[in-house]
Design a protein around this nucleic acid. Structure first.
Lengths: 353, 353
DNA sequence: CTGTTAGCGCCTTCAG
DNA sequence: CTGAAGGCGCTAACAG
């Protein structure tokens, strides 16, 4: 029990040969029984199954995957910070789908740097995964071209390779959020942008389109590019912009973490402000409805993002799907909770006229 | 480019033999170069490396792991809902440590049921992972005894097997939270308990100990066992207990999700209540400091939980650590934010006397 | 120093 | 219906 085995460190698991000997049959027979048991006499199969149980035999998936053609039964998932509920949701939902088909999901260690991503992906490929789901970083992904493994990009496309991509309607969402604010009468809307990922660019595009459609000019000093994508950066930027002589009457935060930073800044600024700006965030988040002013957001079904990606990848891996690269776009909806329905205050309005 | 290859679905990656032929050397030499290149003439090694680059060769980890003894270079992580920031944090931090040693982390699909966990674990074992990190469900885990793979349990121990375990000081945390409330003068403290996991039991124990130490009896009607561990169950229970003729003046929520439910209920009850109870939660959560009343919690370093588990498992897997099963317990601290510092209201006090 | 050889555990022909 | 044999990509042991 509490004894150690310095010389026999590993308890080797039984193999098919052990089972075959135990059951007094040939190796091939055992294999057949294990894989569906087709074409084996019932009595023989019984004996084999008994031996399997007695020995506690478990098929070695590694050896199995070694056969040519036969890919392994695991998918790789490469993404950033699992601590971000957005990514966690993708991980969970894709894992769910993969699991239903008996696939495991391997998470590559993903540091922040773009080189780290490449290394992680290659390590995963060397593990013979049947397919890759990648939330890509900004670097070039052309190196995946010859990997010989199906790839599905999630949340944003990658450059240098034409592969399946599952994402949300970023531009539509950006437009939706902006239109909503414009409809309340806001004419000075600030937008906070995380470092230029593809998604953020599209959201900004929606922002501009909505303005154009409404015949309102975008004040470029309110298009705020943040140096980092975290709450702190957004907090700082919000404080600065709100203390300007001519502050915006509404803020569109392009990311869940940014929304948090905006709210934090507004909370601290509090009474220093003549009036509180309306706020709309992109992506919903837990507790958004419980904050002092419940937060209005533009959101999409992130879990479905992960599910779609996994399903698509599974079909590619099995060879069931041979269509040219697909592009799945999930819609965004508006969830009104209060913060986005604040009208522009009268003082600001007076100034604008 | 946009052509499909129905008959040749896989681009087979180059193998060591290809490299050997290309470099005009033997197979063994290539292997030696790939594994550190010890004992190979420099010039030869150069040629081999060149061939590797030209062919884009990558060692097949699967084949490598087939050798006896040589375990694969991936760890398994089995846990519940990745959507719970608590688990997500464990996943992230353990992944970080594993990655530093060149290990990947395989996530088994974990349904809710206890049988699903066993199946998931066995699938992972069949994939020849080098070790298992498990946040165990309630069932018996004796079946892991003969798995021949090191196991580290995370957050709570499992029954039926004596293995390493990394967890937080649940009892200490429960006691800390309770002492804090008692110190404010609360004598009627309700505790909300998620379905009886090990951790919850310990937290309750701390709750009772703190009472005993203070010479105050626990009102058993305030020890509330919830049917489920989600926010909704806590919300419902909170509403009920607060509407009793003799409601508690403080609430200890034993879980992050439960805390959320408590706050939600209190928010809705609002003015119906004669006075708002103090609230302390177990485990910190994002935005806890931004709620209408910032939430006081007892918390520990969850990321360290994951890191310790991964480090320990890595040492076990490599054989570097052969000590008897370890038990690592991380401390809990109190984070005062407001909700836990509300004194019992005067009306309630009068009643109690 | 370097090439050759024998498996690792399994699946897939191919005979019997 | 069943047993035997070959090979997947790699490493380790053994000759040269």
């Amino acid at each position: 029990m509490s004894e150690t085995f310095p010389t026999k460190p590993e308890v080797s698991r039984p193999t098919m040969i052990d089972v075959a000997r135990r059951a007094g049959v040939g190796l091939g027979t055992v294999s057949r029984v294990v894989n569906g048991g087709h074409g084996v006499r019932d009595e023989t199969a019984q004996r084999v199954r008994a031996a399997i149980d007695e020995l506690g035999f478990q098929r070695n998936e590694v050896a199995r995957a070694l056969r040519p053609g036969k890919k392994s039964t695991s998918l790789a998932l490469v993404l950033g910070d699992l601590t971000n509920p957005f990514y966690a949701t993708i991980a969970k939902s894709s894992l769910e789908i993969a699991g239903q088909s008996g696939f495991a999901v391997v998470l590559g260690s993903v540091d922040e740097d773009p080189e780290g991503e490449k290394r992680a992906i290659q390590e995963l490929v060397s593990r013979q995964v049947a397919g890759l789901m990648i939330v890509p970083d900004q670097g070039d992904h052309a190196f995946l071209e010859g990997a010989g493994v199906p790839v599905v990009f999630v949340d944003r496309p990658a450059t240098g390779i034409d592969a399946d991509i599952v994402m949300v309607d970023n531009e539509g969402g950006g437009r939706l959020a902006t239109e909503h604010l414009l409809a309340q009468g806001h004419e000075r809307i600030a937008i906070l942008l995380a470092p230029s990922y593809y998604t953020i660019g599209r959201r900004l595009r929606g922002f501009r389109r909505a303005h154009r459609a409404a015949g309102i000019d975008v004040d470029e000093s309110l298009v705020i590019q943040l140096p980092e994508g975290n709450a702190e950066a957004a907090e700082k930027a919000t404080r600065e912009v709100m203390l300007r002589p001519d502050p915006p009457t509404a803020i569109f935060a392009s990311t869940n973490f940014l929304t948090e930073g905006v709210l934090r800044a507004l909370g601290e600024l509090g009474s220093q402000l003549k009036s509180e700006p309306a706020v709309v965030g992109f992506d919903d988040f837990r507790l958004a409805d419980m904050l002092p002013t419940p937060v209005t957001v533009v959101a999409s079904d992130i879990a479905e993002l992960g599910r779609s990606a996994a399903r698509l990848l599974l079909d590619r891996a099995s060879g069931a799907d041979t269509r040219p690269p697909q592009r799945i776009v999930l819609p965004c909806g508006l969830i009104e909770r209060g913060s986005g329905e604040r009208p522009p205050d009268s003082a600001a309005k007076r100034k604008a006229r």
